[in-house]
Protein backbone atom coordinates (compact mmCIF):
# COMPACT_ATOMS: atom_id res chain seq x y z
CA UNK A 1 0.00 0.00 0.00
CA UNK A 2 1.62 3.28 -1.07
CA UNK A 3 0.89 6.89 -0.30
CA UNK A 4 1.61 9.37 -3.09
CA UNK A 5 2.29 13.11 -2.85
CA UNK A 6 5.56 12.53 -0.98
CA UNK A 7 7.74 15.62 -1.42
CA UNK A 8 10.83 14.35 0.39
CA UNK A 9 11.80 10.71 -0.02
CA UNK A 10 11.08 8.80 3.18
CA UNK A 11 9.25 11.72 4.82
CA UNK A 12 5.97 9.81 5.16
CA UNK A 13 7.71 6.75 6.55
CA UNK A 14 9.56 8.91 9.10
CA UNK A 15 6.31 10.56 10.10
CA UNK A 16 4.59 7.19 10.46
CA UNK A 17 7.45 5.93 12.65
CA UNK A 18 7.24 9.06 14.82
CA UNK A 19 3.48 8.73 15.19
CA UNK A 20 3.89 5.05 16.05
CA UNK A 21 6.33 6.01 18.79
CA UNK A 22 3.78 8.45 20.22
CA UNK A 23 1.10 5.80 20.13
CA UNK A 24 3.33 3.28 21.93
CA UNK A 25 3.81 5.76 24.75
CA UNK A 26 0.09 6.53 24.87
CA UNK A 27 -0.96 2.88 24.87
CA UNK A 28 1.69 1.74 27.35
CA UNK A 29 0.72 4.44 29.84
CA UNK A 30 4.03 6.30 29.75
CA UNK A 31 2.42 9.38 28.18
CA UNK A 32 -0.21 11.22 30.20
CA UNK A 33 -2.06 12.60 27.23
CA UNK A 34 -2.32 11.95 23.52
CA UNK A 35 -3.76 14.14 20.83
CA UNK A 36 -3.41 13.68 17.09
CA UNK A 37 -4.02 17.29 16.15
CA UNK A 38 -1.47 18.59 18.66
CA UNK A 39 1.13 16.15 17.29
CA UNK A 40 0.47 17.25 13.72
CA UNK A 41 0.53 20.94 14.68
CA UNK A 42 3.99 20.42 16.18
CA UNK A 43 5.40 19.17 12.86
CA UNK A 44 7.39 21.45 10.53
CA UNK A 45 5.99 19.40 7.63
CA UNK A 46 2.30 18.75 8.29
CA UNK A 47 1.66 16.93 4.99
CA UNK A 48 3.76 13.83 5.81
CA UNK A 49 2.21 13.84 9.30
CA UNK A 50 -1.23 13.82 7.72
CA UNK A 51 -0.17 10.99 5.41
CA UNK A 52 1.11 9.08 8.43
CA UNK A 53 -2.44 9.00 9.81
CA UNK A 54 -3.52 7.30 6.59
CA UNK A 55 -0.58 4.88 6.71
CA UNK A 56 -1.35 3.71 10.24
CA UNK A 57 -5.09 3.56 9.53
CA UNK A 58 -7.28 2.47 12.42
CA UNK A 59 -4.19 2.08 14.62
CA UNK A 60 -4.12 5.87 15.11
CA UNK A 61 -7.32 5.48 17.11
CA UNK A 62 -5.91 2.78 19.41
CA UNK A 63 -4.93 5.22 22.16
CA UNK A 64 -8.56 6.36 22.42
CA UNK A 65 -10.07 2.92 22.04
CA UNK A 66 -7.80 1.04 24.40
CA UNK A 67 -6.02 3.41 26.76
CA UNK A 68 -8.82 5.79 27.77
CA UNK A 69 -7.47 8.93 26.10
CA UNK A 70 -10.19 11.44 25.20
CA UNK A 71 -11.03 11.73 21.49
CA UNK A 72 -11.58 15.42 20.76
CA UNK A 73 -13.53 16.66 17.76
CA UNK A 74 -10.33 18.21 16.38
CA UNK A 75 -8.76 14.75 16.16
CA UNK A 76 -11.79 13.34 14.35
CA UNK A 77 -11.60 16.27 11.91
CA UNK A 78 -7.93 15.56 11.35
CA UNK A 79 -8.63 11.92 10.45
CA UNK A 80 -11.36 13.17 8.12
CA UNK A 81 -8.87 15.54 6.49
CA UNK A 82 -6.26 12.79 6.12
CA UNK A 83 -8.77 10.53 4.38
CA UNK A 84 -9.71 13.34 2.01
CA UNK A 85 -6.10 14.32 1.32
CA UNK A 86 -4.99 10.77 0.69
CA UNK A 87 -7.96 9.00 -0.86
CA UNK A 88 -8.19 5.29 -1.50
CA UNK A 89 -7.42 4.25 -5.08
CA UNK A 90 -10.26 3.39 -7.47
CA UNK A 91 -11.96 0.04 -7.01
CA UNK A 92 -10.13 -1.31 -10.04
CA UNK A 93 -6.66 -0.79 -8.49
CA UNK A 94 -4.64 -3.93 -7.65
CA UNK A 95 -4.69 -3.18 -3.91
CA UNK A 96 -8.30 -1.89 -3.81
CA UNK A 97 -9.48 -4.85 -1.72
CA UNK A 98 -6.77 -4.20 0.87
CA UNK A 99 -7.72 -0.51 1.06
CA UNK A 100 -11.36 -1.52 1.48
CA UNK A 101 -10.55 -3.77 4.43
CA UNK A 102 -8.33 -1.16 6.07
CA UNK A 103 -10.94 1.55 5.63
CA UNK A 104 -13.56 -0.82 6.97
CA UNK A 105 -11.42 -1.07 10.11
CA UNK A 106 -11.03 2.72 10.27
CA UNK A 107 -14.77 3.31 9.85
CA UNK A 108 -15.66 0.74 12.51
CA UNK A 109 -13.10 2.16 14.95
CA UNK A 110 -14.45 5.69 14.39
CA UNK A 111 -17.97 4.38 14.99
CA UNK A 112 -16.80 2.95 18.33
CA UNK A 113 -15.71 6.50 19.19
CA UNK A 114 -19.06 7.94 18.13
CA UNK A 115 -18.02 9.29 14.75
CA UNK A 116 -20.03 8.36 11.66
CA UNK A 117 -17.59 8.25 8.79
CA UNK A 118 -19.90 6.79 6.15
CA UNK A 119 -19.79 8.92 3.04
CA UNK A 120 -16.47 10.62 3.79
CA UNK A 121 -14.77 11.40 0.48
CA UNK A 122 -11.61 9.35 0.10
CA UNK A 123 -12.74 6.23 1.93
CA UNK A 124 -12.51 3.02 -0.06
CA UNK A 125 -15.74 1.38 -1.15
CA UNK A 126 -16.72 -2.02 0.11
CA UNK A 127 -15.05 -5.07 -1.34
CA UNK A 128 -15.64 -8.77 -1.23
CA UNK A 129 -13.90 -10.53 1.65
CA UNK A 130 -10.67 -12.15 0.45
CA UNK A 131 -10.88 -15.89 -0.09
CA UNK A 132 -9.44 -17.77 2.87
CA UNK A 133 -6.19 -19.36 1.72
CA UNK A 134 -5.89 -22.97 2.87
CA UNK A 135 -2.09 -22.96 3.17
CA UNK A 136 -0.84 -21.41 6.41
CA UNK A 137 1.93 -19.37 4.76
CA UNK A 138 -0.35 -17.63 2.22
CA UNK A 139 -3.08 -17.14 4.81
CA UNK A 140 -0.77 -15.62 7.42
CA UNK A 141 0.69 -13.26 4.78
CA UNK A 142 -2.86 -11.98 4.22
CA UNK A 143 -3.31 -11.41 7.94
CA UNK A 144 -0.10 -9.40 8.03
CA UNK A 145 -1.51 -7.06 5.38
CA UNK A 146 -4.81 -6.67 7.25
CA UNK A 147 -3.43 -6.25 10.77
CA UNK A 148 -5.29 -2.98 11.39
CA UNK A 149 -8.45 -5.09 11.59
CA UNK A 150 -6.98 -6.70 14.70
CA UNK A 151 -8.50 -4.35 17.27
CA UNK A 152 -10.70 -5.55 20.15
CA UNK A 153 -13.95 -3.76 19.22
CA UNK A 154 -13.83 -4.88 15.59
CA UNK A 155 -15.46 -8.07 14.36
CA UNK A 156 -14.49 -9.50 10.98
CA UNK A 157 -14.28 -12.81 9.13
CA UNK A 158 -10.50 -12.57 9.42
CA UNK A 159 -10.84 -12.41 13.20
CA UNK A 160 -12.97 -15.55 13.16
CA UNK A 161 -10.31 -17.26 11.08
CA UNK A 162 -7.57 -16.09 13.43
CA UNK A 163 -9.49 -17.48 16.39
CA UNK A 164 -9.78 -20.82 14.62
CA UNK A 165 -6.33 -21.16 13.03
CA UNK A 166 -4.02 -20.65 16.00
CA UNK A 167 -1.35 -23.09 14.86
CA UNK A 168 -1.25 -21.51 11.40
CA UNK A 169 -0.82 -18.09 13.00
CA UNK A 170 2.01 -19.34 15.18
CA UNK A 171 3.64 -20.97 12.17
CA UNK A 172 3.46 -17.60 10.42
CA UNK A 173 5.05 -15.89 13.44
CA UNK A 174 7.85 -18.48 13.55
CA UNK A 175 8.54 -18.20 9.84
CA UNK A 176 8.68 -14.41 10.07
CA UNK A 177 11.06 -14.55 13.04
CA UNK A 178 13.32 -17.02 11.25
CA UNK A 179 13.39 -14.64 8.26
CA UNK A 180 14.20 -11.71 10.60
CA UNK A 181 10.95 -10.14 9.38
CA UNK A 182 10.03 -8.61 12.73
CA UNK A 183 7.26 -6.31 11.41
CA UNK A 184 5.33 -9.31 10.06
CA UNK A 185 6.00 -11.35 13.20
CA UNK A 186 4.60 -8.54 15.37
CA UNK A 187 1.47 -8.14 13.23
CA UNK A 188 0.73 -11.85 13.47
CA UNK A 189 1.46 -11.85 17.21
CA UNK A 190 -1.10 -9.07 17.45
CA UNK A 191 -3.71 -11.30 15.82
CA UNK A 192 -2.77 -14.07 18.26
CA UNK A 193 -3.13 -11.71 21.21
CA UNK A 194 -6.52 -10.43 20.08
CA UNK A 195 -8.46 -13.43 21.32
CA UNK A 196 -5.81 -14.90 23.57
CA UNK A 197 -8.28 -15.38 26.38
CA UNK A 198 -10.49 -17.73 24.35
CA UNK A 199 -7.60 -19.52 22.61
CA UNK A 200 -4.41 -19.44 24.65
CA UNK A 201 -1.09 -19.73 22.82
CA UNK A 202 1.78 -20.50 25.23
CA UNK A 203 4.40 -19.20 22.79
CA UNK A 204 2.84 -15.74 22.57
CA UNK A 205 4.55 -14.39 25.70
CA UNK A 206 8.08 -15.37 24.62
CA UNK A 207 7.37 -14.05 21.11
CA UNK A 208 6.40 -10.62 22.45
CA UNK A 209 9.46 -10.48 24.71
CA UNK A 210 11.67 -11.62 21.83
CA UNK A 211 10.33 -8.84 19.61
CA UNK A 212 10.72 -6.22 22.32
CA UNK A 213 14.43 -7.04 22.46
CA UNK A 214 15.12 -7.52 18.77
CA UNK A 215 12.91 -4.83 17.26
CA UNK A 216 13.48 -2.12 19.84
CA UNK A 217 14.60 0.22 17.05
CA UNK A 218 11.46 -0.28 14.91
CA UNK A 219 8.61 1.98 16.14
CA UNK A 220 5.89 0.46 13.97
CA UNK A 221 6.83 -3.02 15.13
CA UNK A 222 6.90 -1.76 18.71
CA UNK A 223 3.39 -0.40 18.18
CA UNK A 224 2.09 -3.81 17.13
CA UNK A 225 3.79 -5.41 20.14
CA UNK A 226 2.39 -2.76 22.48
CA UNK A 227 -1.08 -3.33 21.06
CA UNK A 228 -0.68 -7.08 21.53
CA UNK A 229 0.36 -6.53 25.14
CA UNK A 230 -2.67 -4.32 25.66
CA UNK A 231 -5.01 -6.95 24.15
CA UNK A 232 -3.62 -9.65 26.45
CA UNK A 233 -3.93 -7.39 29.48
CA UNK A 234 -7.49 -6.39 28.60
CA UNK A 235 -8.42 -10.04 28.03
CA UNK A 236 -7.00 -11.03 31.40
CA UNK A 237 -8.87 -8.26 33.19
CA UNK A 238 -12.26 -8.82 31.54
Amino acid sequence: MSINHETVSGAVDSAAQALADELVAAISGTARSFSLHRKVAQQDEPVPALAAIRVLGADVLSAYLLAGHAFPTADAELVHAAVGAFPAPPGTAPDAALWALRDQALTAALAELGVVAAGWPGLAGTAAEPTEAPHWAAWSAELVRCSSLALPPLASPLREQARRRRLDLMRGVSRALLRRDYPSAAKLARWLALDERQACEPLLAPVLEHLEFLAADQPRTKLDVALARRFVLAGAES
Binding site: A137, R175, R179
Partner: peptide, 13 residues
Amino acid sequence: HRWLPVWVEVFAE
Protein backbone atom coordinates in the same frame (compact mmCIF):
# COMPACT_ATOMS: atom_id res chain seq x y z
CA HIS B 1 4.17 -31.95 12.97
CA ARG B 2 3.70 -28.45 14.31
CA TRP B 3 6.96 -26.89 13.19
CA LEU B 4 8.46 -28.96 10.37
CA PRO B 5 6.18 -27.13 7.86
CA VAL B 6 7.80 -23.84 8.90
CA TRP B 7 11.33 -25.12 8.59
CA VAL B 8 10.65 -26.77 5.23
CA GLU B 9 9.25 -23.46 3.97
CA VAL B 10 12.20 -21.41 5.23
CA PHE B 11 14.97 -23.71 4.02
CA ALA B 12 13.27 -24.19 0.63
CA GLU B 13 13.14 -20.41 0.28
